[in-house]
Amino acid sequence: MRRHLAIFLPLLLLWWLVIQLNHYLAPWRMFVSLGGLFIAFVALQLPQRIGLIAALFAGLICDASQPVHFGFHAFLFGLATVIVQRQRPRLDRFEPTTQRTIALLANLVLFIVTALFHLRHVPAEGRLVSRFLWDLLFSELVLWAIAPWFLALQRQALELADPLAASEDRRQVD
């Protein structure tokens, strides 16, 4: 139970922080999306099944507070997690730099896929490109800045909650 809380509570905290950040950025018509950070740790460090469940949970949290089909982000996060999990034997996945890079790349891809999905609901105008680029740039910058802290928080929470299981996860054979 403690281990599950240690996995899910940081994700909930991240969602809350993103919400607050977007609240304060609204006067500048900016929007931050940190999908990549939701999945980076769970995809790289947790066992596959738990990682997938955590990513789906994070996706559903995001879905509930946004006007999208319920399950949209859950599916995207799940797919991104599975893809990263497939690649992780080739990566030095416990290295913070790798985790940060994966978070940035995953965020970029998730941002573009989400934008392509939403594009059909809004009129295509030149202004949209500049808005899209600003949001993407700012999202990546914020992710780059907070990723080390958040990934460390997730790791520490897991080690505090269940040190034995955390070390088992490190040794786990995929």
Binding site: Q48, L52, L60, A64, F70, G71, F75, G78, V82, R86
Partner: peptide, 30 residues
């Protein structure tokens, strides 16, 4: 392929879930 198969099963189950269940879940999360 197992992770992809797992995700595919989850998606399939999700698609087959009645709308009422999904609405209830959405409201619960909210």
């Amino acid at each position: 392929a197992r992770p992809f198969a797992t995700l595919a099963i989850v998606v399939l189950v999700w698609l087959l879930l009645p709308v009422a269940v999904k609405s209830f879940l959405r409201v619960s999360f909210f």
